[in-house]
Design a binder for these strands. Structure first.
Lengths: 371, 371
DNA sequence: TCAGGAAAGGTAATCGTTTTCCTATTTTCG
DNA sequence: CGAAAATAGGAAAACGATTACCTTTCCTGA
């Protein structure tokens, strides 16, 4: 199980070069190497109370807007003291007493992915405006790292956990059972245990279907597909919607026009995908890539081969990176309103906390045509 | 000054529709709308102590690796209890008692900028591995937001403040005076008050100079420049190094080949820059853009005009976005080792905390030639 | 034999808040 | 006028951890 670094198996605690060191020794040495001009401690509620000549209870009540427990005159005096001393309640004292903090943690599968980073950025702003603080964790798509971060954040008494992409993990299941405030963004969890109420994202299946319809409308009949790991329900939904709609229209999807990639490096997946499709035969007229990064990788390989986009092949990405307008004017893409995710996350979390009802936020997507 | 939302001017505290509501009323109502299967509280140190039949002091000592205050048998018993109950110390209790937490805050000027996001991502990993938790704040390049976030984070008892780009602000000056643990990344602060020891980044002036040298070596004599807001010392250093070296070689920089942009939207700056340079006369042979995004914007405009890169004009960006290899193979760029910034930030912070000495980390840059 | 130290571990203060009880002092109103 | 109710505010108990200080027991060596 888990133990703090200080008492790990390997370390012998405070044993140094064979000699047991009493903690006291260390503490009495500590003040020595402290820098001289140490920052003066910020004012605490006690200081404010003393300064205003009231009890800390009164200060606390006034800070919390409880208006019917003190006279207006007292309130003025206290507020003056607060300003004079620059007092701000230390959140740890509050959280400890209240048993919960105003911190929300975000657990992202891969912050190197610009899309994840964009969602995190949007969440930061929305959370801050709603009065929350954001802690950001990168799970690197590893179940045990996800577990570690979840437990760490619980130790921080965070009020909600936002999962920006998820993998199944032991602790996640525990958290679900314990009814912790979990909000899934973009990727639903695998287990069917959780309600569909705790999701923020788009309807990926509909988006995949829309891509197929778009290709058909443009008269493109030989459709291909390069996608990332299917263990992500977001990806598999997109793929299902796309292939489903293609087979409904009768034409279906030639297996030789499909490449299934793996791993986090979508750029490489796209690059390898083109290589693979060519090996298996001719390229399709239209190619759906389950992310923009995959499309970039594919485009790179196509350029190297002298194949022109969109003259020779039409590409459709997913996510619509804001840079596309500037550096990928050849790329169509399914645009997901990521800048709006932040607000949706806040709304979703508040719905979960209040258990009013539906916290689910299904946002609209659009297809951006550039080619 | 600052007051918590609950006691803002506008709000009348707990007055609702003209009726004063006693806090008690609310609290007694609260349990009603709590969801039935509320998560059971995680085990506290008291629970562990009871379970193991020892005092909480002993549990605490064992958790902290103080090995000479309890028998091996007791230690085993306690560790067993810890595992059985899944105990993890609540950080707020620890921070409150110790007067400091293991949280580090990052204040970024603009998280929408992929470079900032990349640094934040790298910092997250390095901090986590070193046992710290990262809180991320976006200051949107506004002094008052920077002030707000700094004060917020102090209320969180954070142990260090990492400024990912800075603007001058009142609180920042205060924090400097109070010798708080501030670490500047990429952009030094304006005020000369701070030591140069608290900086992580590259030598921007040398980098600007290197670009000039590179252009000269390639025999490009008509050099241009498009840069962002000069109030960022990082930008002005780059510009100084570039122009300085150009004038040393005697050729100098034609003022008609310079465009000075403003604001956060670097893409637009690049686009507008080309328009401006053309209005002022002919384009240079080589163009230094003070960020990759500016280069993207410039390239877009050039493409629209049918001007080819690098045949007609050589571009040099800055930062070397990892996507460049894939989507901007026409762009040379000054590569900054952002993935290494995370570790450098941790090293720098630890140097500040221990005041051993220099926390400054000047990392190497390289010029990546693609065109 | 016994002074003194080490070993093992408990008690209680403390960090900064919130909130439940209290206790006075006014007000209100019949 | 007097009882009930409201107002204003204080005292103290939590919340979960750390640590200075104390107590007990056992062992060592002069």
């Amino acid at each position: 199980m888990w133990f703090p670094p200080a008492c790990e198996e390997g370390s012998k605690g405070l044993v140094q070069s064979g000699v047991l060191i009493d903690k006291t020794t260390i503490m009495t040495k500590a003040p020595d190497h402290q820098n001289p001009a140490k920052s003066p401690k910020p004012a605490s509620i006690t200081a404010v109370a003393r300064h205003a000549g009231v009890s800390i209870a009164t200060v606390s009540r006034i800070m919390n807007g409880i208006v019917n427990k003190s006279s207006p005159a007292t309130q003025l005096r206290v507020k003056a003291a607060v300003e004079e001393l620059g007092y701000r309640p230390v959140t740890h004292g509050q959280s400890l007493r209240r048993g919960e903090s105003r911190v929300v943690s975000i657990h992202a599968v891969n912050l190197a992915n610009p899309t994840m980073a964009a969602i995190a950025a949007s969440a930061e702003t929305a959370l801050r405006e709603a009065g929350y603080t954001m802690v950001l964790c990168d799970t690197h798509d590893q179940p045990d790292l996800q577990d570690t971060t979840l437990l760490d954040m619980r130790a921080h008494l965070v009020r909600g956990y936002v999962l920006l992409g998820t993998i199944d993990s032991a602790q996640l299941a525990q958290f679900q059972n314990h009814r912790e405030a979990l909000l899934y963004v973009n990727r639903r969890p695998h287990g069917a245990t959780s309600t569909p109420d705790d999701f923020v994202g788009i309807d990926n299946k509909a988006a995949g279907a829309a891509v197929a319809t778009y290709f058909k409308q443009r008269g493109l009949h030989h459709c291909g597909l390069i996608h990332g790991a299917l263990h992500s329900p977001a990806t598999s939904d997109r793929v299902d919607g796309y292939t489903g709609t293609l087979s409904e229209t009768g034409q279906g999807l030639n297996p030789r026009h499909i490449f299934a990639g793996q791993g986090l490096n979508h750029l490489q997946i796209g690059y390898d995908g083109i290589t693979d499709l060519l090996q298996k035969g001719a390229l399709p007229d239209a190619l759906f890539c389950s992310s923009d990064l995959i499309a970039y990788g594919a485009h790179r390989k196509l350029s190297e081969l002298g194949i022109q986009v969109p003259r020779d092949i039409v590409l459709m990405g997913f996510d619509d990176n804001p840079l596309n307008d500037w550096i990928a004017p050849w790329l169509n893409s399914v645009s997901v309103p990521y800048p709006k995710f932040g607000q949706a996350i806040v709304t979703g979390l508040e719905a979960i906390w209040n258990r009013g009802d539906r916290g689910a936020q299904i946002l609209p997507f659009t297809i951006v045509e550039r080619a």
